[in-house]
């Protein structure tokens, strides 16, 4: 058998894995994005608990961020992957179904990423909230805004503005964490490269391609976050 050249291998020809890799890269972005959005909901709630909760809620929120940032992400993924199907199995057996029920790998992955990145995002949101000028909140109160209206009009826009750099960092973490989802069998970029490497016996070529695609995604998202940051600061007076 004739050895295929690198570009035939990862190209879009009949023997190429190009489309498969691109689809898988799309899957990486999709699972990372879903996890990131789930994480921002979790993060908002946890940050709210840290800022405004009573002693019990505050210590629960503190415990959550400490634990989730202190243990490896891979463990959390294993928990959701194995624990999720065990829980579903238990629920299923209540309704008469028996045997192993697999949780969809995409949902597992997005949930695990959401839970982990929620802990990081909570800290980002809390830090950003503390930068918001107290006077603005008092002013909003004094013109009679209710909590929800004040949150929507005054707090959320400003917190988001200050949180953009931190959110950018978290997004990069999430993107790299999404590679770990490959252990659950979700065909994202790393998993697809693993499959391709196995069937062509050219592991180096495929993992290198995967690395390049990850770099590309990182690079583009860094650019987008920079754009978002400068856009959000367009109304601010600069120190320099």
């Amino acid at each position: 058998m004739q050895q295929l050249s690198y570009f035939e291998l990862v190209g879009f020809g009949p023997n190429g894995w190009g489309w498969a890799l691109l689809t898988a890269a799309g899957m990486t972005i999709a699972v990372a994005l879903c996890g990131f959005l789930a994480g921002s909901i979790v993060g908002t709630l946890v940050a709210w608990g840290k800022i405004g909760g009573n002693l019990v809620i505050r210590s629960l929120a503190d415990g959550y961020t400490t634990v989730l940032r202190g243990i490896p992400d891979l463990l959390v993924i294993y928990l959701f992957y194995f624990g999720g199907s065990a829980a579903l199995g238990a629920i299923g057996s209540l309704f008469g179904a028996d045997g192993f029920i697999g949780v969809p790998a995409f949902a597992t992955g997005a949930m695990a990423i959401g839970i982990v990145s929620g802990a990081y995002q909570a800290e980002v949101f809390r830090g950003a909230y503390q930068v918001v000028n107290r006077g603005e909140i008092e002013a909003a109160r004094s013109v009679g805004m209710h909590r929800w209206l004040m949150f929507r009009r005054i707090i959320a826009p400003q917190v988001l503005r200050y949180a953009i750099p931190g959110l950018g960092n978290t997004w990069q973490l999430v993107l790299k964490e999404s590679a770990l989802i490959s252990v659950t069998g979700l065909v994202e970029l790393l998993r697809q490269s693993h499959i391709a490497a196995g069937s062509t016996r050219r592991p180096f070529d495929f993992y290198l391609t995967a690395a390049v695609l990850y770099l590309l995604i990182t690079w583009v998202s860094t650019y987008l976050f920079q754009r978002a940051e400068s856009h959000s600061l367009r109304g601010m007076r600069r120190a320099s």
Binding site: A197, A210, L215
Partner: peptide, 15 residues
């Protein structure tokens, strides 16, 4: 910019 797992695979399987 690349995940650690990709680096590990690149070295362990790739080489």
């Amino acid at each position: 910019g690349t995940p650690l797992l990709v680096q590990i695979f690149l070295i362990y399987y790739g080489l």
